[in-house]
């Protein structure tokens, strides 16, 4: 008997290498616990769609107003690195899906392996992202050291936009309107996405810690499932970011 007079529901461990799960006392059944958490997490993911949705609206709006600026801006990015990162993220989404499956089928060591591979994917993604940011910095398209400098009245551009190699000019050499705008949107969207990659990798490491202790098995794998959903959302966002930023239509 717990303090509020209810029996605690315990899901037994399927084997000696696993731990039993005690259902939180404010839930009557394991199913109720599972469904409540899933409902809340889908609500959270809906707000994530709206967060990125605002940025996508900004992208589509300015793409419509300054199509040439966006087309030329997209050509400054390496589509090969973008495609490579897309493949890395898709592969990591697959390893995560396999990880959740291993949790559902009580395969402890394979769960750890697939989670480890997913974190590896996240690390490769961020390394490639860093290489890309470095190139943008070196070409003066996003000068990171001056990211918070004020708007430059003389050039009509943001101060962190230097364009050392005059990449963002038309055939007559006239700077395209709002050349900085494409890179402002590129940086904002990829940086917020990158933050999600880092947070996602941290959450998967946390799942691995629990998995190593045998917390997750066929009877209870809720945290693995939810972290998996978060990781797939990161993939979902990138599926749209890749063609819009690297292959500007």
């Amino acid at each position: 008997m717990s303090h509020d007079g209810h029996h605690s529901v315990v899901i037994p461990a399927p084997g000696p290498e696993f731990q039993a799960h005690t259902v939180a006392h404010h839930f009557d059944t394991p199913v109720q616990e599972f469904q409540s958490a899933k409902l809340g997490f889908w609500l959270f993911l809906a707000t994530e769609i709206l967060l990125f949705g605002g940025l996508f609206a900004a992208y589509f709006y300015f793409h419509e107003v300054y199509p040439e600026t966006f087309r030329l801006g997209g050509q400054q990015l390496s589509w090969k690195l973008g495609a490579l990162n897309t493949s890395v993220l898709l592969l990591s989404s697959w390893t995560m899906a396999m990880g959740v499956r291993c949790a559902q089928t009580s395969q402890k060591s394979k769960l750890l392996m697939y989670c480890g591979l997913t974190v590896l994917g996240a690390a490769i993604f961020m390394v490639i992202k860093f290489i890309e940011y470095k190139a943008k910095n070196d070409h003066g398209l996003v000068v990171f050291s001056e990211l918070f400098s004020p708007y430059n009245e003389a050039t009509g551009q943001l101060a962190w936009f230097k364009d050392y190699h005059n990449a963002m000019v038309d055939k007559a050499g006239v700077p395209l309107p709002h050349g900085h705008l494409f890179f402002a949107i590129y940086l904002t969207m990829t940086a917020i996405h990158g933050l999600h990659v880092v947070i996602g990798a941290g959450l998967i490491l946390w799942v691995m810690k629990g998995a190593a202790k045998g917390r997750f098995h066929a009877g209870y794998y809720l945290p693995v499932d939810l972290v998996g959903l978060y990781w797939h959302l990161v993939d979902l966002i990138w599926i749209f970011l890749f063609p819009l930023l690297y292959l500007v239509p």
Binding site: Q35, K38, L39, W42, L43, L45, A46, T47, I49, L50, G53, F56, A57, S93, W94, M96, A97, G228, L229, H232, L233, D235, L236, I239, F240
Partner: peptide, 29 residues
């Protein structure tokens, strides 16, 4: 995106309310 949602995210086998919640975000978008 539909493939990721339906299969990787298991939305195909999820409850109706969870489908409605997530897909409604695209409606508001």
């Amino acid at each position: 995106a539909s493939l990721v949602m339906a299969f990787f995210m298991h939305l195909k086998w999820d409850t109706a309310i969870n489908k409605i919640i997530f897909l409604s975000s695209f409606l508001f978008l």
